[in-house]
Design a protein around this nucleic acid. Sequence first.
RNA 1: GUGGCCGUAGCUCAGUUGGUUAGAGCGCCAGGUUGUGGCCCUGGAGGUCGGGGGUUCAAGUCCCCUCGGUCACCCCA
Length: 429
Amino acid sequence: MSAFQAPTGTRDLYGADGARVEALVARFAHLAHLAAFGLVVSPMFEDAGVFRRGVGETSEVVTKEMYVFEDKGGRTLALRPEGTASVVRAFVQHRPTLPWKAWYVTPAFRYERPQAGRYRQHHQLGVEVLGSDDPDLDAEVVSLLAGFYAAVGLERVELRVNSMGDAGCMPAYGASLAAYLAARAGELCDEHAATWERNPLRVLDCKRAPCIAVREGAPRIADALCDPCAGHFARFTAGLDALDVAWRRDDFLVRGLDYYTRTTFEFASLALDAAQNGIGGGGRYDGLVEQLGGPATPGIGFGSGIERILLACEAEGLASLGETPLDVFVVDVTGGAAARDITHELRRAGISAERSFDGRSLKSQLKQADRSGARVACIVGPEELAAGSVTLRRLRRLRRGLDAAAGPDAGQERAERGALAATLDAWLR
RNA sequence: GUGGCCGUAGCUCAGUUGGUUAGAGCGCCAGGUUGUGGCCCUGGAGGUCGGGGGUUCAAGUCCCCUCGGUCACCCCA
């Protein structure tokens, strides 16, 4: 047991996990660029008020789980529990031209008991668009996330969508829901029997049988939407159809952060257990910019959890995600200068290359080459050094079809040092 | 924050009613083969038995506390 360990609920991602994260971020960045999103990098901590007002005073993410601390200047700061509030704060501060389309990758911090797929530091990929309430944009944003999951290789993903109305129709719906719940408050689960008055919408989201029974007879959001909100939702879902994004309406989809209006959506992995199967979600937040002191500006975005995506990939058996075999392993038993120079030369030519250090034996170096997964070993011994050449040897993934009886020298040949990169290009093609 | 289960080598785990220098497999390093990896053989490194306290002649083993992991609830990515 080492003296220091990663803090509770945190972990180190490295090796195969590190490669997977790299692949996820690269694919997301690529898709974001194709859709004209620009990267935004914001501080991981903010004035705690940014999250209190931005995420919502009543959300549990803020009331129970936020990492709040005082710095040496007496400022009350908080580690970001999610990405949207910071990006919106940056928008209000800098006022970029509209529409502003930003993507990000960020750690997020929540103080809670760790569990499968739930950590005190997790990582999210996301986008935000400020400055348009066009429902076609909603479809574009959701389509981006759906396309990302598809590009990663996930197939068992379900999209649920809903509309939470706006400041015009939501208060009336909240009142009618509250009136309905008041009449049946005794039938709710223990948790919500105590809290339904403060946030009646949360009852719709409850997974316990008593609340599920109660909500069956509850007023429906769909019936309560005003004409503009209903029209917005209809255009949004028509957009999803046009973009070939499969979706399912869920009247009870009520997300946990307070800022959502109109469009809300959630992607769940059907390969994961229900407890932590949410891999990404988001929605529209047309009042958030004002909440943070900016001019009335509509916005929409999503966040998707990298650790959850990794779990979903594992559950779907996508083992090869991020696997990028090394091209060449340089084996040098003449002192290391040749390895030093050849790896440099290959890398400059765009060929990935590794070598061993510390003057290991030929056997040891070849063993390392094998283990590295490299496709080709480039061997330099005294003979090659004297002749100005190298020996190229196919390693395991290039040896299919080579007869073992053909001898130890099968699948290898000499190449001139001067033509090395060109020869390897042909081998690796 | 509440509850269940679990902490022995880098990893997966054995370790008898408490009894001498705590073991195996895998992995790692070296050698067998001073020019050929994967298979095989031999050897080696690597452990304050999560930490602290207690009981005992004696604790990996029993008791208490604590830290950590894991799973579930809550909530969420």
